[in-house]
Design a protein around this nucleic acid. Structure first.
Length: 510
RNA sequence: GCCGCGUUGGUCAAUCGGCUAAGACGCCUCCCUUUCACGGAGGAAUGACGGGUUCGACUCCCGUACGCGGUACCA
């Protein structure tokens, strides 16, 4: 068979914020596609009208854009297989459902939600807490299998609300080779007659995913492990529709688990433990409540992507920092873990720290712009970049930069005098007065000159240099923090440094 | 209940029958530094359990336990 062009898809339903697990699914799709020179498709699975949330689709697209995981086709850019929103493809699904009924692989079911509920109540036992609509139950329900052809025809003609359900074989083994898990097998008798087409004419996920993957010529399908149990339904559908030869290869990705406990990581866990779960801030239009995102928390997108890549995959060498290019080159499904991975926020911050260190200071300065504006600071971008370069090694998040750099933009308002008082004396006051005068005369206010004159004067006055550095720091910053003192002074400049020495002296001697 | 998937330090994890079981995060100690970091040197900490197979099992097989996922006209 001729080698087909690799085509993968990410198919979220627009119901809310984009979970980090979702982004990882996108990432693996993307890496696989790019590695094979293939195409990455974004398809919106909005078949559940009751769960539709306005704005969610745009939000998802923006998340992908922020992460740099751009889809080649999708509702936002179009493409040869448009439309990419399932709601807009509604008319297409019915014919396939009808075809399945005609071929005896599916049937009409007229049961109302109440009747379904009754059936489940009636059949529920201690051993079987969730009865299925299966081969045993279907004969007792109202459907085109239990009803006569005439009765069915009448109901249909009257426009009775109905769904189409797949007719699961009583006892057949269906299996497939998962690219991550190897051979997986199921017995059809344990799977229920899933609804394929809903009463409102919309397909369920089961029908839609098969039809669209076929129509869109998807060659490899990645999805979360939670989909594994419904794989037999999809397998059978590919077969019944006569498309078996075109069926994509499947890969069921391991789940991302909560840091404590063992369950799937949820938004609630993030709220509870104090870290974001969504890629970007998401505000629910109904409740107005905002859930935090990695972007707003101060993560760099490359770092975020890198973190996600390492959750369930590694290249075997021990390398942990990968550019997206490297990921594209090295990614392999064989090295994707089978077991779920607990999310470790501390490690995520460490990744971001690594990226902060290697990211260009001008870019970081630009990221800081909004914060500066908010603080009422007006500073030249180059100045901000210099400062960022000085403080970033002690930050994990972009948002922490201000906390480590504010004193560059404003004089201290309070001083940690307690830190200097114990060893303070008149000699030291004199030292700083004298040094300030020396500074006045300096034509070159560089790091080396500053340090040199400081040490020279200290030595001549017989004061230990070490005992003067902390007071100097307090004068410049207000507290025991910040980059090396002389670096701060150099950046602050002659005028400001002298002013702060004087003001600081007053505070200490007050 | 049933079906499926999984199980190496606190966490991410390497190992594809030879292990004195890498590495990273976090934690601890020390060095550097009279702030905090960065950097450097150390340290504590791991194969769920029981049977096989094998000269040899973390690695292969079978059970058990535990966890997770699914069991919707949700995806």
């Amino acid at each position: 068979m001729q080698q087909q062009k690799v085509r993968v898809r990410f198919a979220p339903s627009p119901t809310g914020g984009l979970h980090l697990g979702g982004v990882r699914t996108v990432l693996f799709n993307y890496l696989f596609a790019k590695q094979h020179n293939g195409e990455f498709v974004l398809r919106i699975e909005d078949t559940d009208q009751t769960r539709y949330v306005p704005g969610a689709e745009e939000y998802i697209i923006e998340c992908l854009s922020w992460c740099g995981l751009i889809a080649d086709e999708g509702p936002h850019v179009g493409g040869p297989y448009a439309p990419y929103r399932q709601s807009e493809r509604k008319a297409q699904y019915r014919q396939y459902a009808e075809q399945l009924v005609k071929d005896g692989y599916a049937y009409y079911a007229f049961d109302t939600p109440e009747e379904l509920e009754q059936m489940r109540e009636k059949l529920k036992t201690a051993e079987n807490p969730s009865p299925q609509y299966n081969h045993a139950a279907r004969v007792q329900m109202r459907n085109s299998l239990s009803l006569s052809a005439e009765e069915t025809a009448v109901l249909l003609e009257k426009g009775t609300p109905h769904v189409v359900r797949i007719k699961m074989p009583l006892n057949e083994e269906v299996g497939f080779t998962d690219m991550i898990r190897g051979h997986v097998q199921f017995n059809t008798g344990t799977v229920d007659d899933k609804v394929l087409l809903k009463a409102d004419g919309m397909p369920t996920y089961h029908l839609a995913v098969v039809v669209d993957d076929y129509l869109m010529k998807i060659t490899h399908a990645f999805r979360g492990e939670e989909w594994l149990p419904s794989a037999p339904v999809h397998l059978l559908l590919w077969k019944y529709l006569g498309w078996e030869a075109q069926m994509p290869q499947w890969a069921h990705l391991p789940l991302i688990l909560k840091p404590d406990g063992f369950g799937k990581l949820s938004k609630r866990d993030g709220d509870r433990l104090g870290f974001p779960v969504y890629a970007m801030d998401w505000t629910d239009p109904k409740s107005g409540l905002t859930s935090g995102g990695f972007r707003e928390r101060g993560f760099l997108p490359e770092a975020f992507v890198n973190v996600l890549a390492m959750l369930g995959w590694n290249d075997g060498t021990g390398q942990e920092i990968f550019s997206i290019q490297e990921l594209i080159e090295r990614f392999s499904l064989e090295r994707v873990h089978k077991a779920g991975a607990k999310f470790d926020y501390e490690k995520a911050k460490w990744f971001n720290h690594q990226y902060l260190l290697m990211t260009d200071n001008n870019r970081l300065a630009a990221l800081l712009e909004s914060v500066l504006k908010e603080k009422g600071v007006n500073a030249a971008p180059e100045y901000v970049a210099t400062i960022v370069g000085l403080v970033k090694e002690r930050c994990n998040l972009v948002n922490e930069i201000w906390d480590h750099a504010f004193f560059f933009f404003q004089q201290p308002e309070t001083y940690d005098v307690a830190a200097v008082k114990p060893k303070w004396n008149a000699d030291k006051t004199q030292f700083f007065r004298d040094w300030a005068s020396v500074l006045e005369t300096l034509s070159d206010f560089s790091l080396a000159t500053l340090e040199e004159s400081f040490k020279q004067l200290a030595t001549s006055m017989n004061i230990k240099v070490g005992e003067l550095q902390l007071p100097f720091r307090i004068m410049l910053c207000g507290g025991k923090f910040g980059p090396p003192v002389f670096n701060i002074a150099e950046v602050l400049g002659k005028h400001e440094t002298i002013a702060r020495i004087m003001k600081g002296l007053d505070a200490i001697n007050a």
